[in-house]
């Protein structure tokens, strides 16, 4: 009876995994098939003949190198800025006995609640009047200090004993020095989590970069892919190759570093 139950449970889990992983596998295998084979009935599972043509013609139809570079620049700036600035806010909120701390934290929560679409037009008008439309600065500006980052860092720093900070103050260290030399090194695990979450969010971000980037040389990967998908509606192989190029970096990173992610979800208190 128990054994039967376990077997049913495994069967259900495997069926679920097939439904979840199926589209990924279909995309990956399809990116190595000819358009004719992708459309063939009945469908083939493995490609009849593995071809790389879709990837080479992707390079011709979409500026993969520029888009990857843009995505990397944007993600790099956003990650570095969040690691530093969210930690600074968290330090002020947890270690500096800050009278206006509750007000600042209230603003963090408010920023978390406002829907993106409400801000989209006025944010764009702001960025455009600063002359930052179609620039990296315009793309990264709204994401430099994210509420989730402040939240995560504040939760973690709150657990660091105040005595450590007091001891450093007695030794005559200034606040910047304590922050960089004492507190930040203790935050390494949560910094890894925040870095990972911020990187994935930035890499996958679509609407805002699509609005700010007005020329192809500023497109990030998702924007370039969305653009390709409106132009190449019939070239399935190329589109599937494009999907693989866009999603693979984040998936690899997630699989390799998932323990940091799990820690992050736990730290954020989503228990």
């Amino acid at each position: 009876m128990t054994r039967l139950r376990t077997a049913i449970r495994y069967a259900a889990l495997t069926a679920g995994l097939a439904i979840v992983a199926g589209p990924f596998l279909w995309t990956l295998l399809g990116s190595f098939k000819t358009d004719a084979e992708i459309r063939r009935e009945p469908p083939t599972f493995l490609p009849l003949r593995w071809i790389a043509d879709n990837y080479t013609s992707l390079l011709e139809r979409m500026d993969v190198v520029t888009a990857t570079f843009n995505s990397a620049v944007v993600a790099g700036v956003v990650v570095a800025s969040n690691l530093l600035f969210c930690s600074l806010v968290a330090y002020a909120l947890t270690k500096l006995d800050f009278g206006a701390g509750r007000l600042v934290f209230g603003l963090v929560l408010l920023q978390m609640m406002v829907p993106a679409i409400v801000l989209l037009i006025p944010q764009f008008v702001t960025v455009a009047s600063l002359g930052l439309a179609d620039t990296y600065a315009g793309i990264v500006l709204p994401g430099l200090v994210t509420p989730l980052g402040v939240f995560l860092m504040r939760q973690f720093m709150g657990e660091i004993p105040d005595e450590i900070v007091h001891a450093a103050r007695v030794d005559g260290a200034g606040e910047f020095r304590i922050f960089f030399r004492v507190v930040l090194p203790l935050c390494k695990p949560v910094l890894a989590t925040l870095g990972l979450i911020t990187f994935m969010a930035s890499w996958n971000n679509f609407i805002w970069p699509a609005v700010v980037a007005q020329h192809e040389d500023m497109y990030t990967l998702p924007v370039a892919l969305a653009n390709l998908s409106t132009r190449e509606t019939a070239h399935y192989g190329v589109l599937l190759a494009g999907v693989i190029v866009v999603i693979t970096p984040v998936l690899l990173l997630f699989v390799l570093l998932q323990r940091y992610f799990v820690q992050g979800v736990a730290t954020a208190g989503l228990k």
């Binding site: 589209p23 890499w203 996958n204 969305a226 599937l240 999907v243 999603i247």
Partner: peptide, 19 residues
């Protein structure tokens, strides 16, 4: 495995699902 779609680019998923 079950978590992967959640961290995948929505554009990647949308293009793949359209096909």
């Amino acid at each position: 495995g079950y978590y992967l779609p959640y961290v995948t680019s929505i554009i990647g998923i949308a293009v793949a699902w359209r096909l």
